[in-house]
Simulated scan of single mutants.
Amino acid sequence: MSNKTPIQWTHSTCNPSMGCDGCELWPNPSKVRSELVTLALSASGESKLRLTALIGLELHPYEYASQIFHDRIDLALKLESLIPEVPSYLWLEKLEQIFKCYAGILHIYRGGKPADWSTPSVKGHAAIFEKPELFPGRVAKSANLPDLRGKKAKDSPWLDGLPRLIFLSDMGDALSRSISFDYLKAEIIDNVTSPQGQRHIWLWLTKRPKRMAEFARWLESRDLTWPDNLVAMTTITNQKTSNRIANLRQVPAKVRGLSIEPLWEDVALDLQGIDWAIVGGESGKSARPFDLSWARSLLTQCHQSETAFFMKQLGANIVDDGYPLTVRDRHGGNWEEWPCDLRVREFPQSFHDDSLIQSQPEKSNPPETPTIVPSC
């Protein structure tokens, strides 16, 4: 649980579980092998069959990709000795390029390498990122955080006056297959709907909206409804993953949102039933280009569908009108460095008017929509 976070679109984060089954941002060992073979083929005269065998032999001891990332430096040196046409720094660069999930990378950096892959070296993390672990009680602690309605948000004027926004699962995916619906009901639903939890808006993000819809039906079979203050959200990274939107629409949430980050290409989205879209470019030293025309297209799509648009960050590899755009913020997250037309940070109107909240604010103030565009 974090009372304060650098994530621009929320006040706090909370992780009822740590870890994730994997997604397009976090490869499985087979995908890692395929990427390494492609690199070897670009430099070596060996056959694809032999290179696959050599690299596969080095990766054989690893059951999970996160174990590979832990050992990436030693692995790069071993691969150089086997295939000397590719120097170790290129092997290491490739290994770091194919792991894109900030949650997985932070988990590895902060959690450390376990001695036996069964017990995390740092309390509060999963030993292996792809094997999610449960942390009951965290959502209840977040529910007890102070009510923020009517209060100023220091250095974040777009959050002024809003209820506390709590991002669920920024360090994994609570809808991973191994996590039971009974646990999600007890840890998330019961606390979100508690008297304390009803003072806040909870933002539940998953790359598995189909399972989120299944969970909603499971709740209905027990005469439980989806809480108004629990926003259902999914991630879109490219046109291929936009099919998640149809599954998200099956969740009977009062508000649904998209995290379109990191965005890898221009996308055309069906935003019917979508109330909020957060957009961002990729960060990190091997970030793929983020063309601002993609963001502008989404801004137009959102305004045509009356979907609130939130520009989170431009990323670390920005392209504007065919030219690189240099900014000081390494994530491209300082909106004062952006073109004026993209300095937009909107929230759904229901975040402002208390229609999602059942309890009265601790200090009753009329809702105000914060300024979303700084002066240019």
Rank of each mutant, 00 (worst) to 15 (best):
residue 4 K to F: 13
residue 6 P to Y: 09
residue 10 T to R: 08
residue 13 T to I: 13
residue 14 C to A: 14
residue 16 P to T: 09
residue 17 S to R: 01
residue 19 G to D: 09
residue 22 G to R: 07
residue 24 E to M: 08
residue 27 P to M: 07
residue 29 P to S: 06
residue 31 K to F: 11
residue 31 K to R: 14
residue 35 E to Q: 14
residue 39 L to Q: 04
residue 45 G to E: 10
residue 46 E to T: 06
residue 48 K to H: 12
residue 53 A to I: 11
residue 53 A to R: 14
residue 54 L to T: 10
residue 54 L to F: 02
residue 59 L to W: 08
residue 63 E to Y: 10
residue 65 A to S: 15
residue 67 Q to N: 05
residue 67 Q to W: 00
residue 69 F to E: 10
residue 69 F to M: 10
residue 74 D to T: 12
residue 74 D to H: 06
residue 79 L to R: 00
residue 82 L to I: 12
residue 90 L to I: 02
residue 93 E to W: 00
residue 96 E to P: 00
residue 100 K to D: 13
residue 103 A to L: 04
residue 108 I to C: 01
residue 109 Y to C: 03
residue 109 Y to I: 10
residue 110 R to N: 15
residue 111 G to C: 08
residue 118 S to L: 03
residue 120 P to Y: 01
residue 120 P to N: 07
residue 139 V to W: 11
residue 143 A to V: 12
residue 151 K to C: 09
residue 152 K to Q: 14
residue 153 A to D: 09
residue 163 P to I: 05
residue 171 M to R: 06
residue 171 M to F: 14
residue 173 D to V: 07
residue 174 A to P: 07
residue 175 L to V: 02
residue 182 D to L: 00
residue 184 L to M: 13
residue 188 I to W: 02
residue 200 H to V: 01
residue 200 H to Q: 08
residue 201 I to T: 11
residue 205 L to T: 04
residue 205 L to A: 06
residue 207 K to N: 05
residue 208 R to T: 06
residue 208 R to C: 02
residue 214 E to Q: 14
residue 215 F to Q: 06
residue 221 S to N: 15
residue 239 Q to K: 02
residue 251 V to F: 06
residue 254 K to E: 14
residue 261 E to G: 01
residue 264 W to F: 14
residue 267 V to F: 03
residue 273 G to L: 08
residue 281 G to N: 06
residue 299 L to V: 07
residue 305 S to E: 13
residue 311 M to S: 11
residue 313 Q to C: 10
residue 334 N to T: 10
residue 342 L to S: 03
residue 364 S to F: 12
residue 367 P to C: 05
residue 372 I to K: 04
residue 376 C to V: 07
